[in-house]
Amino acid sequence: MLLELFWAFFQIGAMSIGGGYAALPLIRSQVVDIHGWLTMTEFTDLITIAEMTPGPIAINGATFVGTQISGLAGAVVATAGCVLPSSLIVLTLAWLYNRFRNLTVIQGILSGLRPAVVALIASAGLSILMTALWGSSSPADWLGDFQIIPCLLFAAALAALRKFKLSPIAVMLGCGALGVGLHLCGLM
């Protein structure tokens, strides 16, 4: 059973290129369709939890399914399976990077990849901002319920980071605490 669990998540880890939501259909096919470890409802709950908690969705899924099937051992085995293939691939690429990064061609390629990475981070940030301010990242809902309090919170957090150079983790914790405070005052 543990071996099956390991192998299922090994495949998920090896095939989910692009991270995050790219892994969802793979997790579904392994966990719901092939092995029947979770029902579709449980799978939906898993997505909800994964969205609410930190950490990569594939790791969250591995832990969730592993725990349901055989407790802590299951969680550890599934997580290990999920992480192993990408670790090996990534370390190989790191080795190649360290060896060849001073070549002119590689330098050229990397100088073109950096702007692309910045753009990808910007896009991910924008969709999180949309979700925070409008409760949805789809443009169709932009005119819907714009929320002023998250917007003020965002502006305050940005000011704290840029002007006062506060640590990101302090800023996030502060925002969470303010969220709870505002909720208790009936504002959020």
Partner: peptide, 9 residues
């Protein structure tokens, strides 16, 4: 609340 913080970071 933390979502706004993450977006700011």
């Amino acid at each position: 609340g933390m979502q706004s913080g993450v977006a700011a970071v």
